[in-house]
Every structure is written in C-alpha cells, then in structure tokens.
Design a binder for these strands. Structure first.
Lengths: 269, 269
DNA sequence: TCACATACGATCATAAACGTGCAAATTTGC
DNA sequence: GCAAATTTGCACGTTTATGATCGTATGTGA
C-alpha cells in the first residue's frame, strides 16, 4: 500500500474512533509497526492528527465539541454583553404563559437567562437551550425530533415532524448571520434548513441581531424582509439601516447595554 | 483500554455524578486501582477534574447539570453497581456502528458510561442519555420530538413522529418496573406510552432488569413476554424465574458485579 | 480515644510500546 | 535497463505504562 493511501486510512480510522492503535492500523494497512509509527509521526508534525502513546487520535476530541455549559465554544464569548441585552428585550416581549419558538443560535441562547422565572411554552431546536430551560426554569420545553448536530448544537430531521407542524406560537425568535435589503442571510446551510421549517409556525417573527449584522452578508438567503415583524438590535444601528427596516413597517427595538447607560449619563452630565 | 479512552470514560463518569469512586472507574475501564489513581492524578494536574479522597469529582459539581447531573434523583443511588453491571452486558451486545434504541430509565441510563468510546447510532427518548452521549462520546444521537417531561426525563409527543417511524434499529434496550408471567409491567402511564411507540422499531428487544424486578408487579402491562428476546439480570434470579423465561426461549444473561466476583473467589478458597 | 476499614503512595517485576540501525525491497531518474 | 534514492521491515536495546504487593495515612464508628 502506498504512503498516501496509508495516510488516508490512518486519518479516517482516527476520525471514527476515540484512539486508533498502532496494531489496528497495522492490520488495516497490512504493513509493519515501524511504518505506521513513521506515518503517525509524519502526520503529527503536519498537524493532521495528534500522536499519543499506543497510537493516534483526532485533533478535536468530542470532549471539546458541543459542551452544554458553553454551547458554542468560539462565538459564545464575543459580544456577550450586547447579546444578553438584546435577548432581554426579546424576553420582555413575552407574557407569562405565551408559547414561543426559539431558534438555535448564540444570541438567542442568551434568552434562557432571562427566562428563568417565566412559565412559558418554549419550542426550540437548540439542544443547549432545551437543556438549560429544563434544569433552570419551570418553562415547559418542547423539541423537534431528529439528529443532534454537535457543531451547531441543533436538532434537525430530514422529515417533516408532526410535533413541529402542530406547534403554533405567538412569537418566533431567531438570530441571523446578516441582515440587509435582500433579507436575512445565514452562512450554514444546516441552520437555514432548520429555521425554514419553523418560519410559518408563528404569528410574529422577531429577529435578534446586533448592529454589526447589518454590515455582514452571507451567501445564503434565509427569508425576505417582509416576513419580519420586529428587529431587536443595539444603538450601533445607522439611520439608513433603521430607515430600511421602518420603511417596510418593521418595528426596531434598541437594546441598551450597561455601557450605553453609562455613556448617556455622562453625556447628560 | 488505552490511556485516552480511559480519560474520556473518567471525565464522562465524573460529570454525571457528584463523585465517581475509584472502584466504579475500575469496573468501567476494567483496569487496576493503581492505573485509575494515576489517571485521576494526571487529569487533576491538567485541571480537568478535581481529585478527592475516594475518587474524583467534576470541577463544577452540582449546578451545571442540575437535573442532568443527577437525572433521577432518588432511584439513581440505589443499586448503582448492579445497574452498571447489567448495563455493561447490554453494551457488550452492541457492535461498533450498530443502531440501537435506548429507552429512558435509571438502569438504561447506566449504559452511557459504557458507550463513551463507541460509535453507534443511538436513538433515545431520554433527555439525559442524549445529553450525556452528546457531550461525552462520538455516538450519533437522535431524539424523537415532543414535550420533555421533567419527572421522567423523557421526550414524549402525542403525535406519531416521522423520525420515530423511520428509525429502525438492530436492538432496543428497555428497563421495566416488573417482569412476570404476564409480561413486562410499568407503573407510569407516560413511560408505557413512550415505550410502546418504539416497541416495533427494532429487530431484537433486550430487557434490563435486576432480579428484584421479578418479585415486583405494577398495575400496567407494557408488553407480553413473547415480544422479548433477551433479559439481562443479576445472579439473584431464582431458578423458577429463569425457567419461566427460558421456556419462552428468552435468553437470560447474568451480569456479574465486582462483589459477585469477590464472593466466588472466597467460596473457591 | 481506640480499633477498624478503607484509601493512598511507593516500589518493583512484567509487558507493551518506542526508536534506531541496517538490510531488503521498491520507486525514481537517467 | 541500471543505479541512486527512498521507503519498508526486522531486530535490537531502551523507555514507558501497568498491575500487584505492602506499608502508611486517613477517615469512620463504637
């Protein structure tokens, strides 16, 4: 077997197993231990796997991916304050007992912290949101069926779920990668698929998007602007952007962060 | 078992229980005390868990999972060793890549610890099982849609879900409140409802029931004995009970606990 | 406080994994 | 088709992990 072939075999074995031992790889490739060791060493310095005693493992062990505690490892940490302020306004729209849909995303995730003392009916395709609400609130939690995708942390099914079809909510809350004249955009096709399934299941569509989203475009259009009823953002929104929304009779809600409050206070003084 | 695999097992065990004892981990990994102690020490200096006398605990003990942490508050602590031994036999039946169904319950929950290094397709209506597998294993996780019931910790929907109907597994694992000549019995109507939806979705039905279940009867009959293919229990099962099962061509598997092993050793000596 | 049980750490023998040198085999260049 | 260069496999000595044993430390209950 050729070197490249072996490398492919090794990498695939490593992906599908917690740790691939030298012995296993010897059997798979029908070569010697020494060769496998050399291969592993080479792939290790190339940064394509991690070398461990006894064999090799993938670079990203599942322990790191999809932690419930920190649901979206990377995105989570940026702009948390902003996101939480936006999420607060979103929850403020809800009344006790409302049925609402919360789509998976880093901004919408922040809503859970404001929902702890509520008693709403929450439908969500986000596993971390469901998990948090379940353990830290008395809201009733409903999820769609399907496979749970670790990276996006959402539940998604290729089938039309009856649960989804039978759930009709007063409001649906959704994040987005970008927002512009053409509508909402999203980068991940999986998210698009998940979100579109829920679009028609609510009276009112509320978008949570910090102002930087007005200057970002992604390749995939999720829905047009006229589907949207409300947008919650921060004071970084520009006049023309706000105008664009209000021309379409979309209500714009500005969430004030703690920093904003300080600034207003100092500007008054 | 390899070092990395052990580490993952340990981390997984630690995070779903207030404290994982060295003994438990020895059973889970089938290694020696010394090795487990070394592993715990290593993980401790890496800051991945906290070392305590008798075993190890998670860095964030109670709050994180809340309900996830101790999925079934009361039942969880009784007979854990027994349940884990039974669960081990259950997982031993599975081969890499199998698709399996795991029904919610305290005994079946123990299966997750033995599944950390597997890569199966797992369909479960148990939220804690899904959550644990998601964060501590590479298994692909599929859930049905529906409301999450806090007390039983299962996902249940009044509708026939397409996800459920389209999933067909090699084996289905199920606990039970009682087992007798009339069949399996269960106390909670909700569990009956959940379990019956899945009964026809697998080739083989495996029941996890410690021997005390043979002397318990509940009011509600879940299914008849002739639906069952295998029963995993402990050595407390009586001859007539075993006969009852084998007369119906049900395979009986006896799970040995560590205590059992000790007793045999001493009785030999 | 004492006795007892359990948990712990150190030591050591064993087995497995590792790296290296060298010869055979294979590929590459001419 | 031949020779150089590279890769591969084997054997060797070295390093490392593991498990058993035993003495010590730490709780636990009377």
């Amino acid at each position: 077997m050729h070197e490249r072939e072996r490398h492919r075999v090794i990498l695939s074995a490593v992906q599908s197993r917690p740790v691939a031992t030298v012995q296993e790889l010897v059997e798979l490739t029908e070569t010697s231990e020494a060769t496998i060791r050399r291969d592993i060493a080479a792939l290790h310095v190339q940064g394509r796997l991690r070398r461990v005693r006894g064999g090799a493992e993938a670079l990203t062990p599942p322990t790191q991916g999809g932690l419930i505690g920190r649901p979206f490892s990377v995105n989570e940490t940026i702009n948390v304050g902003l996101k939480r302020a936006i999420a607060r306004e979103a929850v403020a729209l809800c009344e006790e007992g409302d049925s609402i849909i919360i789509n998976g995303g880093t901004t919408t995730y922040q809503m859970v912290f404001h929902l702890t003392n509520r008693r709403c009916q929450v439908f969500t395709n986000s596993f971390p949101i469901a998990s948090h609400l379940l353990t830290h609130s008395k809201n009733s939690v409903i999820v769609p069926g399907g496979t749970i995708y670790r990276e996006q942390n959402i539940i998604l099914s290729p089938f039309e779920s009856d649960v989804t079809r039978h759930f009709y909510a007063r409001r649906m809350f959704m994040g987005a990668q970008g927002i512009g004249p053409h509508g909402l955009t999203e980068a991940d096709p999986l998210l698009i698929q998940a979100e579109q399934k829920l679009l028609n299941q609510a009276e009112e569509l509320v978008i949570l998007a910090d102002s930087s989203k007005f200057r970002q475009r992604s390749s995939l259009i999720l829905c047009r602007l006229d589907r949207i009823h409300k947008v919650i953002t921060d004071r970084g929104i520009r006049d023309e952007e706000r105008q664009m929304l209000e021309d379409r009779e979309i209500q714009v809600i500005i969430a004030e962060t703690r920093d904003d409050a300080k600034q207003s206070a100092s500007s008054v003084a």
